[in-house]
Design a binder for these strands. Structure first.
Lengths: 224, 224
DNA sequence: ACTCATTATGGACTGAGTACCGAAACTCGT
DNA sequence: ACGAGTTTCGGTACTCAGTCCATAATGAGT
């Protein structure tokens, strides 16, 4: 890998983290400037042919300042998604406690989808031909959702009275997230006339939830 | 990402590719030497702290020769798995034609598992503390299995009379592969007393297959 | 004024991956 | 035996992401 910067720390790593600290030099509002500069350059010359130096330069900022805001170049490809993904813990807490594990799984994904802004489609996807970062986009994306899968494992383990390392739990969490990603990317790739993200996600995730229901909702093995 | 080198081209990219070419300088049997040197160094100093130069040097070979055999440093983490993954197309062809799509999905995964050598556990997993390449290991692994998911989408589309881009198809393929990975890594992480890989994979994949059965095995939408 | 915390920035460094080029080593046709 | 074509080997040089470190700028609190 190299970096990754899980969504939790992604933006958090930047100056935005120390939100309400006392003193300190004020941020030159560079973050948004950097995003914009990067967006322009990606459209102009493509992702691969854009260097971090160029981004920083266009933003009128030092190269190191870039790394103050983003841990990785590829973080720029996931701006909106990271916003949503950072809300995962919160979303998981909001899932009603009474639900069967398999239902809780589905509802968690729907809750996440409901949070995502309607226009929050990664540049890399909506302008894929122009930006041309297929490979790096997928790689950096997979790591993000792997993080989600891990959180989901813990959540599911709790709800199902099993351990997070239970193979069944991990498989269910992984498959669910995979379905989520498929649904979401299908939605994102649909034209302007795409429906609601929640619907796309439901269609994709439902079967997984249903499939794991018999094994997941049954009483966990006696051995704890 | 950066490189990736899909399993199909992974080894193929190296000299081993031009198997039965006519003339040319003979390979100094370096491939295996490089693998061994890398393995030693990874155990000695860990993955991250091992440079390609060091590997090449210990193997008594030029740095460039390394890249003749491996496209990426992380390829070294997946030697055996790549062998198995390269057989995916073949495995898919061997899945009986009469099966329902959801069953075909499961059988494909089992067929793949059956091919994998019993001792084929990535160094990075069996020696994870020593090697310490968690992040890069996962990242490079995810890409590989994403490749599998894509092949599986095409396969499934064919078997289900749908298109490979059908959201349902992609979701099913993705979820299935996710389950496969969960099962396989659970198996790999189990101690010496692990059972058969096929069994672990079956347990993980079964529910997904079963879950998608109703939607997948039904007649595809009239519109094409 | 002084201290502390935070951000900005510049310089230097590591290491992966790429490009290019010429030399070695082998096959084959003549 | 010789030359042509082909493949591997290996060196030099380069690009660029990401890290480290030291220093200056800017503000809040006392």
């Amino acid at each position: 890998m190299t970096k990754s910067s899980a969504p939790g720390t992604a933006r958090g790593s930047g100056p935005a983290a120390a939100a309400s600290a006392r003193g300190g030099r004020p941020r030159a509002s560079s973050r948004r400037t950097l995003e914009d500069a990067a967006g322009e350059l990606f459209l102009e010359r493509g992702y691969a042919r854009t260097t971090i130096d160029q981004i920083a330069q266009r933003a009128g900022v030092g190269r190191n300042t870039f790394f103050n805001y983003f841990a990785t170049k590829s973080d720029l490809l996931w701006l909106d998604v990271d916003d949503t993904l950072r809300a995962v813990p919160e979303v998981l807490e909001e899932v009603p406690a009474g639900l069967a594990p398999s239902d809780a799984l589905r509802e968690a994904m729907l809750g996440l989808a409901a949070r995502h802004p309607h226009r929050g489609i990664p540049l890399a996807l909506s302008q894929r031909e122009t930006i041309g970062a297929e490979a790096e986009f997928r790689a950096s994306g997979l790591e993000r959702f792997l993080g989600v899968a891990e959180q989901l494992s813990v959540f599911l383990a709790d709800r199902a009275g099993r351990t997070p390392n239970d193979p069944l739990v991990r498989a269910a969490a992984g498959a669910t997230v995979a379905a989520l990603v498929s649904g979401a990317s299908g939605w994102a790739l649909a034209g302007v006339e795409r429906g609601a993200l929640v619907d796309a996600v439901r269609t994709a995730v439902e079967p997984v939830s249903r499939g794991y229901a018999p094994v997941l909702d049954a009483a966990p093995p006696a051995t704890r």
